[in-house]
Design a protein around this nucleic acid. Sequence first.
DNA 1: CACGCAGAGAATGTATCCAAAATATACGGT
DNA 2: ACCGTATATTTTGGATACATTCTCTGCGTG
Lengths: 247, 247
Amino acid sequence: MTARSARQNSGRLSVREQTYRLLKKKILNGHFPPEERLVEESLAGLLGVSRTPVREALHKLELEGLVRQKGARGFCVPAETAEEMSELFEIRAVLEGYALSCLCRTISEDDVQRLSECITRAEHGILENKLDLVFEHNTEFHDIIYQLVRKERPRLFNLIEDMRDYILRYRKNTLGTLRAAKRSIFGHKKILMALDLKDPVLCEQVMRAHISEAEADTACTMTDASSADPQQANNSGGQAPTVLPLK
Amino acid sequence: MTARSARQNSGRLSVREQTYRLLKKKILNGHFPPEERLVEESLAGLLGVSRTPVREALHKLELEGLVRQKGARGFCVPAETAEEMSELFEIRAVLEGYALSCLCRTISEDDVQRLSECITRAEHGILENKLDLVFEHNTEFHDIIYQLVRKERPRLFNLIEDMRDYILRYRKNTLGTLRAAKRSIFGHKKILMALDLKDPVLCEQVMRAHISEAEADTACTMTDASSADPQQANNSGGQAPTVLPLK
DNA sequence: CACGCAGAGAATGTATCCAAAATATACGGT
DNA sequence: ACCGTATATTTTGGATACATTCTCTGCGTG
């Protein structure tokens, strides 16, 4: 096949980048059974590219710990462990807690107001018993915060984004119960309060607690795992960094 | 040139890995002027390999933020900024602070004793006015802690290691003044105390403070190259330590 | 029957080749 | 003299070909 070369300037993504993102997404979505051999040529055939971009993607993913060299014979996705999940959530809690404590010193009244409105709308969702609405506005709440972090602490933001990605692996079935939704909104209220009080220590505390709750929820869904869900990742186009809500 | 192929099994490192490490080291040591174009072929010639490992190394380094795509024409090392350095130290302080707070719950009496001996030996170095001895035992102190973190929190350890690497870029001239050495040992004493008390909050506090001090030292050496002034090792380098104490 | 060695096959490692794209330069027109 | 366009050069993007090495299997021997 002739390479429809796509440079990074002309808006299109290079094959290398597409391959990397697609493989990463597939790994995070659990499309590859743990410990199964990942053969460059097979993946290349699967994605319709040559071995070169696949190889580079695998080595980049190795750097992130998403694949591991299996002896001298290809790569594999390491098995999921409860320890790993717990550690990832811990790190995320620490990083996001600190990020929030940074934010509280610089956040504008305007942004506080926007966050407040997210909570209000999410609560309306609860009253109308529309969990998808709650989900939407909870996501918006977090997105606002992430954008602020990105603006002020780009490196920290990258790290947080990575942690969120890695955790995705452990969130196969994101079931949104009413109970979890209510608890999430309550967490957001506390976050908003800490921000409004401009109390760094409180910010760190409430964010850590909020993420610990998310961890607990995820741990629950993980107990009855082994759900081989061959859901195809059909988003092959230019995907934005999908920032998911905590809950 | 014929490939001296070296697989990962036979003890030797692959050319790919060697290239990546060497390039990374060169970047961190400041061998490449910021904003200067890094041309794949030139680097390949410089390292005596083909373009392939160089290209892969550059893309891995891009993932780490150590190089950046310059338009559509190659890579360059991004310029050093005070903000970046500050942020890296912040993140490191947060991560290592949390790591220490984890450690204090599981550390053995034996390890506490070993840490204590490091401090004692470093203090002997002070008395004998041998700064290299102090440096050696201070390093040992940290190494012991890092090994413990690695054992209990492998992901956290990786992140911390990365941050330390990235910071290396900003520590061109690691001048060890007597004053800084003394302060460092004092910091280690506080760390040991917090560990011994098994107080997670205190652990986090003292470690963050310790790393903030390191940041201040580094910031001083960064302001201008000719500042070999021991007085500037004090914590008054223009910008306040950005890492807040936890409490 | 088991253990070991050897050969074949398979998968990765590395290099080279070709194509595409962007920038720089030169030439011509206004 | 200046600006725009076209061409050429440089450099990266991607694929393929070749070398290397590891593993698996089969056969022979103890």
